[in-house]
Design a binder for these strands. Structure first.
Lengths: 231, 231
DNA sequence: CGCTCATATTAGGCTACACTAATGTCTCCA
DNA sequence: TGGAGACATTAGTGTAGCCTAATATGAGCG
């Protein structure tokens, strides 16, 4: 009566997909995602999260340690990475092929990621030449669920004199993204750190290509993730 | 406390959007859409439809005459046409820009139409050069909610000797669509009706461009909508 | 060591939307 | 004109997700 041995996964709801993405983000550094952190990220009440946590762990998507938090199971992680792939492929496609700017793709991708088929995502990815990074420099998981893990350091922590490649811009706020774009601070750019003011002051960098300087306040510098170039 | 005079419409749910599209289709010839027709089209139970009909008429989207059926209000019609525009623009975009065939775009568009923003639809439409017809020849409503109304006749009713332009293919079944494509029976093609067998028998047409004949059974001929060319 | 406060969970309720079973209404034909 | 049968509606349930209010837990500090 039912399908054969091959287990047919019953398709996750939009909510479930959002929870899994949030838990992935909050626990990607290895720890637990707490109820209140999830509630904060998704702007839901804590009891709502408690309720969903119960459902997700019954579905086998997360492991719940009461009063401590949750972590994804391998099944949950796979589902989360699938959503992240969708989101990032969509962001890149919208940017490259439909004239979106990197500061306004997020919301569109956020809605579409729940509606597109795997087939469409793979067609978009193929059209884009199987890209590895989204417009903000975040790595795109492969269709098989692998994601590049790179050690990046925040510009705010970089030493004066260091030569860096800007790799990821860790914000989705349109205003900040627009500002970064204006300043030429986008993934792939190479810079040299020439100064840092004390007491959490701003960082000054030279853009190697254009030879011009930029002064970046701490709050912004913290979300610019960089890779150290050979010294 | 609430928004100013400008009435902010509260965003329709996926279900509501589907009902409105169905009601549009069923009542576009002027009559009422009945509960069981809607239930049939959406594959829902009749009581489910009754319940939704109550909600839709409270929302002012439809007019309900008990035991007779429903019709769209102008507000409901606007919402329905907006969905149809989305669907058809999506179908064309997927066909033209992402390698879909006309027989497999329907389901993808069906899901995406609920998730895309108006902005994205307009970008797609602009990319496509503000198209007027989708891949099946159906007219695409304008962003302002106007739709071309053409008098078309079914090939099954065409007179022998008539010269016709095939304009719309009125099915979404992939197998039939593939067959039509193989036969060269696609929108825009010009044909001459050369024969019709009696007792609801098949229609024979010549493809004017290639000069080859096609025999089309009644069931298929009924969904091929044509415009009569000057006699 | 125990208490306080932040955090988590449970209890109870609401909405949207589906379902089946029971009931109402209309139409057409004998 | 009076049913019979087709169709519509109402009644009553269920599930997913959200909420607020009430309660439980645990961790750090006096």
């Amino acid at each position: 009566m039912t399908l054969p041995a091959s287990v047919q996964e019953p398709a996750l709801t939009r909510s479930v997909e959002d929870y899994l993405k949030a838990i992935y983000r909050l626990s990607s550094q290895g720890g637990f995602a707490t109820t209140s952190d999830i509630a904060g990220l998704l702007t839901l009440s804590a009891p709502s999260v408690s309720g969903m946590v119960k459902r997700l762990s019954e579905m086998g998507l997360i492991e719940h340690v009461p009063y401590r938090g949750v972590q994804l199971t391998s099944q949950g992680r796979r589902a989360a990475l699938r959503m992240i792939r969708r989101h990032r492929v969509l962001e890149l496609y919208l940017t490259r092929n439909l004239g979106y700017d990197w500061d306004n793709v997020h919301n569109e991708a956020e809605r579409l990621e729940h509606a597109v088929s795997d087939d469409l995502i793979e067609r978009m990815a193929a059209t884009l030449g199987d890209p590895r990074y989204d417009p903000h420099g975040d790595p795109i998981p492969t269709a098989t669920g692998d994601i590049e893990e790179t050690e990046l350091a925040s510009l705010a922590d970089a030493e004066v004199g260091a030569e860096l490649e800007l790799r990821q811009v860790g914000t989705q706020e349109p205003a900040r993204l627009r500002y970064f774009a204006e300043q030429g601070l986008v993934p792939g750019v190479r810079v040299t750190v020439t100064d840092r003011q004390p007491f959490n002051g701003p960082t000054t960098v030279y853009l190697n290509a254009s030879g011009t300087a930029r002064i970046v306040g701490r709050e912004l510098a913290q979300v610019l993730w960089c890779r150290e170039l050979s010294p």
